[in-house]
Design a binder for these strands. Structure first.
Lengths: 138, 138
DNA sequence: CATGCTATTGCAAGAAGTTGCAATAAGGAA
DNA sequence: TTCCTTATTGCAACTTCTTGCAATAGCATG
């Protein structure tokens, strides 16, 4: 049990608290592995914590993403999904069949550097979603 | 008047129609130039067309984006905004102060090519939003 | 210019996401 | 262990976005 307990010190160090709601949501993300919509997270987590509210799920997911424990990604048309934070990667989605491919961050590294030096910005978030047609559909 | 009329043949050729709603929305996007949220578009366009509905605005913006007359972009946390389709560009947004910078597509060209050859995908949409800290905030 | 096909709209109901505020409960300190 | 501070949650009301379906209106055709 309790991958989730590993996160406690990370939170405490910054003045935040570990709660049963956060644990349940982290457990869901961790166990499922892939992308989940807020509603999906809510349905799963509620099995462990029946009086969890959707409000809390939305707020918690945003909180986790902001503090690096989860990542958010834009799918299809402007909807956010979340996954547990692991290796840095991006997504490539087929507009036609919806097929999704992971893209290693290393492929974009040079471009990130070019972008930083030309703009003066320090890029923080690092999840991009690209849309296109996969080899079958094009 | 009627930049909007220029679009008529584009639509007809593909079997779509030019309507007063589409004209009003295109006019708003064209006149404003920058990013607008669906609600902002609705409020502006309604001045010209009082019985326009929000439903239609949402559907029209999606339609225009799908057919290349407008572009959609993800801002802040998962909300879509739209602008008239012009030169290809991307955005760089400061997480702290919200300041926004345009990024020329040419800067990302090499990366797009790398991505296409390594994935087999043909990239279609070409608007990305990057998040970071601007030179003042970092 | 009248007709017919069907793309497009408006309406109404619903789903998804947000916000303010008072009540609750982590977890540090006594 | 108990107390206290305040981060976090739940509730309720609200805004934003989506969907199905019947009514409307572009526009090609005769």
């Amino acid at each position: 049990m309790s991958v989730t307990l590993d996160y406690v010190p990370q939170l405490r160090a910054r003045g935040y608290r570990m709660t049963s709601q956060r644990m349940a949501i982290l457990r869901v993300l961790h166990h499922f592995g892939g992308h989940l919509s807020p509603t999906q997270v809510y349905e799963q987590a509620r099995k462990q914590l029946p009086n969890l509210t959707e409000t809390t799920v939305y707020r918690t997911l945003e909180f986790l993403a902001e503090h690096g424990l989860a990542r958010s990604a834009h799918m299809g048309n402007g909807h956010l999904v979340y996954e547990i934070a692991q290796h840095e990667h991006h997504h490539l989605i087929c507009r036609n069949c919806g097929n999704t491919v992971e893209v290693k961050h290393s492929l974009l590294k040079t471009m990130y550097q070019k972008l930083e030096s030309s703009s003066g910005y320090k890029l923080t978030d690092s999840h991009l979603t690209f849309f296109g047609l996969c080899s079958d559909c094009k």
